[in-house]
Amino acid sequence: MITPQEIKNKAEKKYTSFLQSLVENIPFSKINIRGDKSYTKSSLPEFEKEIQQIISQSKEKKGFGYTLEFQKVKTKYLGVQDLPISIYFDNEKDFLKFLGRKNEVELFSKSTKCILETFPELKNWLIKNPLKVIANQAEWESILKVCKYFKQNPKPNLYVRELPIKVHTKFLEKNQSVIRELLDILISAHIKIDEKLFEKRFNLKYAEPQIRFKVLDKTISDRFFSGIDDIAIPVSQFENLNLPIKKVLVVENKTTLYTTLTLPRMNDTIAIFGSGFSVFNLKYVRWFDNLKLLYWGDIDVQGFEILSQFRTYFPHTKSVLMDKHAFNKFFEDDNGTPRNIYTKLNLTDEEQELYEILKTNNWRLEQEKISLEYANNFFDEY
């Protein structure tokens, strides 16, 4: 026999579709609850107890809630008994009072009315996301202020906290998820659809990642940077650099970047701190396409996975000092970080073979452990 709690659980599952019908102005229709459990057959007292439980929470006893319809049925073990053949809510008031959602729905109706009056084009979003309307119930006035501003200024080119909107300074940051969904609809013609970062997507300024690099050719550092050879600039500025270089060395770790100036003189070359998987910040540096690109990372699974990632942006990248000879010469039995990546990597056959060895044995050789003398000799002959 179905229990009152099971009836409530099933009624809760009907709640979302009820809210959707309110947005669509569909009149309330009877909500049926399927009573799909059979009666307990062990004894008449147990059967009567089950019946009394569901009756005790019904509209008949409480004045609201679900209605029960009974029918005399000849049972196999208990003879002729009155069994509930239908459980339903025949009006909105009974349904909402049973769920304890009356006040919530009143606020929902006010919110959806206000949203639709301001932006009728959000109707389909409301139908698909009624629970998000409720989850943001206390914030809709401010959310709509933000949306109005972007509707009138789809390309603000300001920092989030500079926006002239009368909301709390951190409001937009805290409510980005729902605002993003709405702006995707309201200003779809102006967004950068492929950008995931909120600020980039909606034409805002943001604290850009810094690209740190060292100029390994003193002639270039003197000519373009007043002799400064250790430089960090925003990624957008780095993307527009115009230097007379022919080669770029990307190193995984900061310590290795510090030591690159001890390398043999490298004409027309800069070294970049890739900062591990943050090499994705370099993916739009299209002037790399015509340069010789070298990647020097740790000899571990992550090092080769970062190399693989970098090659998705720049397929002509060549790895350096990431080979079996360097590994065998300097390996000190260090453990790596286990990985469970099974996708095909952008590695050469030799790199893939070493990657599998490192992965199987969980080995690591950090690039800092390769001696400067060894690195110097390598680059002196490169």
Score class of each variant (00 low, 15 high):
M1S: 15
P4N: 01
K8R: 14
K8E: 15
K10S: 09
Q20C: 08
N25K: 12
I26G: 10
P27I: 13
Y39H: 15
Y39N: 15
K41W: 11
I54L: 15
I55V: 14
S56L: 08
S58N: 09
S58G: 08
G65I: 04
T67H: 12
Q71A: 14
K72H: 04
T75E: 12
P84G: 05
I87C: 03
F89S: 00
E92L: 03
F98H: 04
L99Q: 06
L99F: 10
L107G: 07
T112I: 15
L116G: 11
P120C: 08
E121T: 12
E121C: 03
K123M: 08
K128W: 03
N129K: 12
K132Q: 13
I143R: 13
L144Y: 05
C147F: 08
K148N: 14
Y149F: 15
Q152R: 06
K155R: 13
Y159E: 10
V160Y: 01
R161I: 08
A189R: 14
I193E: 12
D194S: 08
D194Y: 09
K196M: 12
E199R: 05
P209V: 10
Q210F: 02
I211D: 05
K218A: 09
R223S: 10
F225S: 04
S226K: 03
D229V: 00
Q237V: 05
P244D: 13
L249R: 07
K254I: 13
T259R: 01
L261D: 11
L261Y: 02
F277K: 11
K292H: 05
Q302V: 05
H316S: 10
H316K: 12
K318A: 07
K318G: 00
M322V: 12
K324C: 10
H325L: 09
F330W: 09
D349H: 02
E356L: 01
I357Q: 12
W363R: 00
E366M: 01
E366S: 00
I370K: 02
S371R: 05
A375T: 00
F379V: 03
D380E: 12
E381W: 02
